[in-house]
C-alpha cells in the first residue's frame, strides 16, 4: 500500500503532467462558417428595392445608404439581431449570412413582398397629393400636375372626376410616400411578406 502511494505522488512530479496541468487549453474557439453572423455584402449590386429594411424586425438595424453612385445596405451593430430576414428578402442576393443563401437555393424557398393599397373613401378628399407624391407615378407620367389628374394609363393611381382611382396596384414599391403626404390619413399601404417554397427536384425544374 505504501508503494502505491509513492507511485501516486510520483505521477504529480512528472514534467509532462505539470506542463499539462499548468498550460492545458482547449482548442481555440472559432465560430463555424455556418453560424449566422452579421449580414455581409456579397458584392452584387444593390437595386434599392429596400426589401431588407421592410423585412427587418429590429428598429434601426439596417439602412440602405448612398455609396459612390450606387446604394449599399449598412448593418448597424447593436441593433441587428442576426435573424437573417434581410438576406432572405433581398431579391438580388446583395447580403449573405451563414448558409442562408445556400439553404434557400437547395430548398427552393423565397420571401416575396407584395403591396396592397387601401383607400378610405370616407376620408379621401380627392386632393391628389398621393398621386403627385408617388415616385412610380412620376416615372410613368412626368407631366402629372398638382390635382393628380393624368391621361396616362400606366400610373398606379390617379384622380378621376374628383375621386381617387387605383389602376396598377402591382406597380407599387411599398415606399409609403403617399401615406406621409396624405393630409387626412386616408391612404394606407399594406406590405405583405409571403414565404414560398418550390421544391427543386433532381432533373426536373
Amino acid at each position: 500500500m505504501g508503494l502505491s502511494f509513492v507511485w501516486y505522488l510520483r505521477e504529480f512530479v512528472r514534467a509532462e503532467w505539470i506542463k499539462k496541468f499548468l498550460f492545458a487549453r482547449t482548442a481555440p474557439l472559432v465560430s463555424p462558417s455556418y453560424f449566422r453572423g452579421f449580414p455581409e455584402p456579397t458584392g452584387k449590386t444593390c437595386q434599392h428595392a429596400l426589401f431588407c429594411m421592410m423585412a427587418c424586425p429590429a428598429p434601426g438595424a439596417i439602412e440602405v445608404v448612398h455609396a459612390g453612385d450606387g446604394w449599399i445596405p449598412k448593418i448597424h451593430k447593436g441593433h441587428c439581431i442576426r435573424c437573417g430576414l434581410c438576406v432572405e428578402a433581398c431579391p438580388n442576393e446583395v447580403l449573405t449570412s451563414g448558409r442562408i443563401l445556400e439553404t434557400m437555393e437547395r430548398e427552393g424557398t423565397s420571401l416575396l413582398f407584395s403591396f396592397r393599397i387601401a383607400i378610405d373613401k370616407d376620408l379621401c378628399t380627392g386632393c391628389g397629393n398621393c398621386c403627385t407624391a408617388c415616385p412610380v407615378n412620376k416615372q410613368a407620367d412626368a407631366q402629372m400636375g398638382a390635382g393628380g389628374h393624368s391621361s396616362n394609363d400606366e400610373v398606379i393611381m390617379r384622380v378621376q372626376e374628383g375621386d381617387i382611382m387605383v389602376i396598377h396596384e402591382d406597380k407599387c414599391t411599398g415606399c409609403k410616400t403617399c401615406e406621409t403626404s396624405c393630409p387626412n390619413g386616408a391612404i394606407r399601404i399594406a406590405r405583405i411578406l409571403e414565404g414560398y417554397q418550390q421544391p427543386v427536384q433532381e432533373g426536373i425544374q
Binding site: A58, G60, H76, K77, G78, C80, I81
Partner: peptide, 12 residues
Amino acid sequence: GNCPISGCLFDR
C-alpha cells in the same frame, strides 16, 4: 448584447 447599446427591441 444589443440592449445596453441601443435598447433594441425594448426601446419602443
